[in-house]
Amino acid sequence: MTSAVEFQAVSRHFGATKAVDAVDLTIAEGAFFAMLGPSGSGKTTCLRLISGFEKPTSGQIRIFGEDVSAVPPHLRHVNTVFQDYALFPHMNVRDNVAYGLMVKGMARTPRYAKAEDMLALVHLDGYGDRKPAQLSGGQRQRVALARALVNEPRVLLLDEPLGALDLKLREAMQDELKSLQKRLGITFVFVTHDQSEALSMADSLAVFNNGRIAQIGTPTDIYAHPKTRFVADFVGSSNVLPPALTQSLGGPTKWSSLRPEALHPAPFGPITGTVTALRYLGAGHRVTVTTQGQDIAAHLPSGTATPQVGSQMTLTFDPAALHVMDEA
């Protein structure tokens, strides 16, 4: 099976800035692929390299096996849901959705019929006559989705599509995007800086840092086995322990990570320190214990007794939970 998108040593430099630096990447057909990273890490530039709004400084990009170095955006069968949606303000919703079909020369009746179908798919039946300005943020986002999907793209690119929505709506849209992707079987490439979003939606993800891919794999793999300190820290607020501390906890002299959920209060244990902070999270507490000058966060499920700030506390963990990283 050919891969949907393939990067071979792709770089995109802006002057001295290496936005994307020698990236190798393969996205399987039908995947829900997330590109995760802080702002400026190169994930959005990678997305724009796929859509064709950026051209690689060096390296090769293939879409379904075809080299696209000479293909402009409008001839790539790839569509994008833009971060700010970029709906056409002078057209109503129906014309927005039908735009891609119109420029390809489809007659009015069939293209409006397809646009209405697509609006029904995103639960916006009956909104065709409205202007984008009359819609809420969530509705605009659905229009942007419908406008891209109506073209039946081989790859759908989503640039932080949920960033502007409030929490409740974001969670609902996450489920909806996921089921839509399953149903349509289109390859989704999704850019986000929100690690929980990436973990919950993607079936495969790449973590970006400084223009390079720090780690690529499935969400469980990346969460449980981060390869570098950066990944451990960025994906799900892990405790990152320096080599000396790792060794004192029974590991090798290497950096390691330890999830807060893996730590439990106990009468005896390898970690004893002063409680320096306590935060209520709804479903339990997060406690920060300082030992040997190092802050270690532990998750206390609700029902567990909460310690006083300033008191001493001892923590224990299953040695298997201590994840030692390759990075020196």
Partner: peptide, 14 residues
């Protein structure tokens, strides 16, 4: 039947 990933140019404008 899937559409091609690359659309061939349709004329001078493209």
């Amino acid at each position: 039947m899937t559409a091609p990933a690359i659309i061939p140019p349709r004329g001078l404008a493209d």
